[in-house]
Amino acid sequence: MSWKAWFGVIALGAALAGCGSGSSTAESSGSKPLVAFAQANSADPWRQVFDAETKAEADKHASDFTFEEQAAEDDPAKQNNVIDTFLLKQPKVLLVSPVTEAVQAQVEKAYDAGVPVILLDRAIPGDKYTAYVGGDNVEIGREAAKYIVDQLHGKGTVLMIQGLGGATATTDRKNGAMEVFKATPGIHVIEGDDCKYQRNAAKTYMENFLQSGKPFDAVYAHNDEMAIGAYLAWAASPKASGKRPLIVGIDGCQREMVDMIKAGKIDATFKYPIPGPKGIELAADILKGNKPTDKKVILPTERVTKDTADQYLAANPNLAK
């Protein structure tokens, strides 16, 4: 009975494991080299698009290498386990989107063992990696602020709804924008609450802020979810009959956001670039024997407004939701 039960569980698991890996198990021992990707998490919308675009790019190279990905639930200890286990399979290139710098030791172990390591999105201290691909949040903050200053003709009050305190993305998106705002004498900035990048938190904060009755002309949210939350609060308030404030977000990874821009509910978002496809491209180059020429590849942002929304949707078929 119990033997059978155990055997059933294991056999099912094994069957599933077989299905899951499909051809890769057979081939990893064969001629095709392995490109392994240790992802930080696969849960938030930006990471979902990240996964989809990375997979799509890897599929283009399916005849050159096998691609495998494992997510780590944003737990650096889990990511260390993933990297250690990947190394047993002797990958030819290791892609890592670090959870935190706590994975530095494992990344360096891989690099020291001669495996080229490409870091995506987040960097680690030191220089023991082959290449880094990511966006520049300070520059994105500057671009967003320049757009807001332009739209307000250099005069007005900006409410900044902030992302998770202490996160580098938050600090960078804030500092980049403040640089531009401070250089414009007509602009006054209200530093809003830490809404943790969450729509709901931003909505509640905005409801309270509207209650206070303080005048403002624009909302600069550190991500799209919070921009949507701010819009929803404004649309449900008595003030919705008046002139809508300018609303700007960052990320550009959700169809919902682009649709709202198209519908004229939100004004703009700035794409936080997805580093996966470029990482796969570099991996393919390394397999051909070409070392990356630049150690750091900084991908540019892209502004999405009502005019460019359709074009953006067409160019980015893998957007979340």
């Binding site: 569980v9 494991a17 077989g18 495998e68 494992q70």
Partner: peptide, 19 residues
């Protein structure tokens, strides 16, 4: 051992959790 085997087999973390 189960975790390691699942990673070696390329099974998604979330499928592993279900098991």
């Amino acid at each position: 051992c189960l975790n390691v085997l699942l990673i070696l087999q390329g099974v998604s973390y979330y499928v592993g959790q279900g098991w």
